[in-house]
């Protein structure tokens, strides 16, 4: 099985390793957004997050396994924390990144981590440090073309790594439940759907719920989980939680992973008994 993805002509000679697609995509979005809107207060905060992610990953992995490891996923976690965390101080950026990475070594089931690292870091930071930070939600540009470009480029790239179905299911689920909410609350559908057009969701949909390490292995499973995230988010939104999608993924993600592993083991056990 190839772990690379081909680029269109005339770049067909160049292949990008699959695990670098995420880092390259998120870097591209970040630089585009920064050039367009200057979304990064300072580079220092971003580099603090990336640096903390690298250090935590390298040290913990070395300590636990005795080996050094590739830091591409730490880069994604660090850069995600650098974008998602909003604080005038530097330490929340570094701490969020460090907690994100550390969670991978603490919350494990059958050999793999069960939380999306950045999602875990963000949710925990909201709980323990809300007086010092917020999460990117309303602090970005509101330009339609920039939004469309990010969505289109992001979705094309995501489809290259076979995760388009997750994004599409989640977006469809979100819009469906936005409609339900608008009926239930009597508010306008536009207001309910508005968050989907914002930057927080671009990152959430393109990166968090599509993270290969914390998504299910089957398309059906992925779609069900994406829909369930939108469903659980419905209740958080009815409870007026600003960061509803993060909470929903925080709950649904690990349960789904544990269930899949348990289900697969059960099936294997049944198969071995039959043999």
């Amino acid at each position: 099985m190839s772990f690379s993805t081909s680029l269109p002509e005339p770049f067909s000679q160049i292949t990008i390793p699959k695990n670098y697609i995420g880092p390259i995509l998120i870097s591209g979005i970040l630089f585009a957004a920064h050039i367009s809107f200057g979304i990064l207060d300072t580079w220092t905060k971003l580099f603090s997050a990336i640096g903390a992610a690298f250090i935590t990953e390298l040290l913990l992995h070395r300590f636990v396994t005795g080996k050094w490891r590739d830091i591409s996923s730490a880069y994604v976690s660090g850069i995600s924390a650098g974008i998602l965390v909003r604080s005038p101080m530097i330490w929340p950026f570094a701490l969020c990144a460090a907690i994100s990475i550390a969670s991978k070594y603490v919350f494990r089931y059958k050999g793999t981590h069960i939380f999306n690292p950045t999602n875990f870091g963000i949710v925990v930071m909201i709980i323990i440090a809300s007086d010092s930070m917020a999460v990117l939600s309303i602090q970005w540009g509101n330009n339609m073309w920039a939004m469309l470009v990010i969505w289109i480029v992001g979705l094309i790239t995501i489809s290259k790594v076979n995760r388009f179905n997750i994004c599409a299911t989640y977006v469809a689920g979100f819009l469906f439940f936005a409609w339900i909410r608008s009926i239930y609350t009597g508010g306008s559908f536009m207001a309910e759907a508005a968050p989907l057009t914002g930057p927080m969701y671009q990152l959430f949909v393109l990166f968090m719920i599509t993270d290969p390490k914390t998504t299910l292995s089957t398309k059906m499973g992925q779609n069900v989980v994406a829909f369930l995230i939108a469903f659980v988010e419905l209740f958080f939104r009815l409870g007026e939680a600003v960061y509803a999608p993060f909470y929903a993924l925080f709950i649904v993600g690990p349960i789904a992973l544990i269930f899949e592993k348990w289900w697969n083991e059960r099936k294997q056990d049944a198969a071995s008994v039959v043999r």
């Binding site: 939600s137 509101n142 339609m144 309910e192 914002g198």
Partner: peptide, 18 residues
């Protein structure tokens, strides 16, 4: 936060503000 994080065409119109 729902509205002000939304697209230009949503935030600009007072009708969309809850």
């Amino acid at each position: 936060s729902r509205v002000v994080g939304g697209n230009r065409n949503i935030i600009i119109d007072a009708v969309n503000w809850p």
